[in-house]
Design a protein around this nucleic acid. Structure first.
Length: 569
DNA sequence: CGACCCTGCGCG
DNA sequence: AAAGCGCGCAGGGTCG
């Protein structure tokens, strides 16, 4: 059973039951917004799949009303996948003119208060293309008529589960101790100062830098000024990047590197950041599922996917609770091994650190070499150490390396590549095609050809990486969806249909609070931490089976139950 | 003044 | 141009 829930022009919620092919089956129900959670909770007894036009816009109403749902289908996200997927190119959906389902969602951040601003899904033009019921039917049909529906079906389910999880994680927030964060800032930067003023320690370092560079008015935050000042004292730099400065011998270097480090802390995660993003002891970033072309998530605001290790000590479980932090070890190379069915490479990672396994197999000398060679293979490195190590890797793991090279060649030609579950890479743009065409033009110059070749290789590196990064993102979605499903079984109380009035969704039971590409954090009552660890571990194996069947590849995790995020690895 | 680009750096 | 992918964000600087 599907329940399509959408918002009407006057702010009510319209729920339309649909049958398995997406056709309206029973009469629709019209609800006031505040009645929606209670209604949804009743429906949950039969575990419907909720069809949302945009999960991030409508699900917060339910969460705010104390209701989590089990299953979802996000029309906007699934449309994006099906529109581009090579597997569904002949479908009605893919061949239709661009319509409202292709338009980017409104970019303004959501209001913190769920349900206060949700106008963007209301459309005046009641055309067939814009109707959600029709769109859902087109999506089901596109999947059903493609060559291998199972994979896409899984992808759409995983993507949609991701949308539910993203909304839930934003709603729940990551536990954040502002007192600990403040302590760190004061220790590193000095006492808090008003915005625009340099904290004590930064000002002190700025003075030292000015003295060493003989420029009493230098603003170390100005890259051009700093570069000129460095050159004036005879330091030949072409940039002011930390890694480049590190190589130089001069008394200004040490204080300058300190300055950069601290200036970064201040601007990225200083007091202003804390005031903006931490509300009632929780960090509530907005996750954007499908925000990256490869299918990875992005975030909007707060820089949640760049939380520096430096400040992770402020992420602390509530009293009586724990954080279960789990990280997929060497995820992308394992994905590559499975994608290419390279049993030798899969064997190297069986029950052990994959890079260590590669060393143990005698392929390269050190773990560091194994890592840099693997990354180079997946990113398309040609020079340097990883370029030199590639032949050894190729000899040991021909199937895996072959797959990356095939993907690169496809991209160089301008072809599309696809992930394990069928997410396809975007086609190169007009400019790319024009540059390639120019190189084949009779009057093409050497420069034209060089440019075209270099651009083709760039796109090849993109498609090479796309299949691995994108398939890894799919694994991670399946992993998380499975964790979520099992966590619910672990603490079923608030979902039981017998409970007549919904309560706070995250007050009592373990729930996901953070996701970072190949890493999750579950916030859990301490007594359940062991169960959560098992769930997370089991879910990794399940995700592997969902993607790769019985191909014998391990997806190892490092799992830790901790009080503070900083304690994990 | 805002819009935009550039540089640099954090994360995977 | 940090060898080699994908991001977000802040601050300086320039331009209209």
């Amino acid at each position: 059973m599907h329940l399509l829930a959408s918002r009407t022009a006057n702010g009510e919620i319209l729920v339309r039951p649909l049958d398995s092919s997406g056709r309206p089956s029973e009469p629709a129900t019209l609800l006031a917004e505040h009645d929606f959670p209670r209604y949804a909770l009743r429906q949950e007894a039969s575990a419907p799949r909720w069809v949302f036009e945009d999960t991030s816009r409508i699900y917060p109403i339910l969460l705010g009303g104390g209701v989590k749902v089990q299953r979802g289908h996000d029309l906007r996200l699934c449309h994006a996948i099906l529109r581009l997927s090579a597997a569904t190119q002949s479908s009605e959906l893919a061949r239709a003119e661009p319509n409202r389902w292709d338009r980017a969602p409104a970019l303004e951040p959501q209001a913190a208060e769920p349900g206060s601003t949700l106008f963007d899904l209301v459309f005046d033009d009641d055309t067939v293309e814009n109707d959600s019921t029709e769109e859902f039917r087109r999506q089901l049909e596109a999947v059903a008529t493609c060559a291998d529906p199972g994979r896409l079906r899984l992808l759409l389910a995983a993507e949609s589960a991701g949308a539910l999880i993203a909304a839930e994680m934003q709603f729940a927030g990551l536990p954040w101790r502002t007192d600990i964060h403040e302590g760190l800032l004061t220790r590193e930067l000095g006492p808090r100062v008003a915005p625009g003023i340099r904290p004590e320690r930064l000002e002190g370092l700025a003075q030292v830098i000015r003295r060493e560079l003989g420029d009493p008015h230098l603003n170390p935050d100005s890259q051009p000024d700093l570069m000129r000042a460095l050159q004036r004292v005879g330091l030949e730099v072409s940039s002011t990047r930390a890694w480049e400065l590190q190589k130089l011998q001069h008394p200004v270097i040490a204080p300058l590197l300190d300055y950069k480090k601290l200036a970064r802390l201040l601007s990225a995660n200083g007091w202003y950041w804390m005031d903006t993003w931490i509300v009632d002891g929780r960090f509530h970033p907005e996750y954007v599922p499908g925000g990256v072309v490869t299918g990875r998530w992005a975030t909007r605001g707060g820089g949640a996917l760049q939380l520096p290790k430096q400040v992770r000590g402020a992420v602390v479980a509530d009293t009586g609770w724990k954080l279960v932090v789990a990280d997929a070890a060497q995820l992308e190379p394992r994905i590559l091994a499975a994608l290419s069915r390279d049993t030798a490479m899969a064997t190297a990672g069986r029950g052990t650190d994959l890079y260590a396994g590669i060393v143990a197999s005698g392929v390269v000398e050190t773990r560091d070499h194994a890592k840099v060679a693997m990354l180079g293979a997946m990113y398309g490195a040609t020079t340097g150490e990883s370029g030199r190590l590639l032949p050894q890797l190729k000899k040991a793991y021909p199937r895996a390396i072959e797959l990356t090279e095939t993907a690169a060649r496809a991209g160089e030609r301008g072809d599309v590549v696809s992930t394990r579950l069928g997410r396809s890479s975007p086609r190169p743009g007009e400019r790319w095609l024009a540059t390639q065409a120019q190189a084949y033009h009779p009057g093409a110059t050497d420069a034209d050809e060089r440019r075209a070749r270099s651009q083709a290789r760039d796109w090849g590196r993109f498609t090479r990486n796309f299949i691995v990064q994108g398939s890894a993102a799919e694994w991670a979605l399946c992993w998380m969806a499975e964790i979520r499903r099992e966590l619910r079984l672990l603490a079923p109380r608030q979902f039981d249909s017998g409970r007549p009035s919904p309560g706070p969704v995250f007050a009592e039971s373990p729930h996901l609070v953070f996701f970072l590409h190949d890493e999750v954090i579950v916030h859990t009552p301490a007594a359940l931490a062991d169960d959560v660890e098992q769930i997370v571990t089991r879910a990794a194996a399940t995700a592997g089976r969902h993607l790769f069947g019985d191909f014998p590849v391990d997806f190892l995790l490092t799992v830790a139950t901790v009080d503070s995020y900083a304690e994990a690895k």
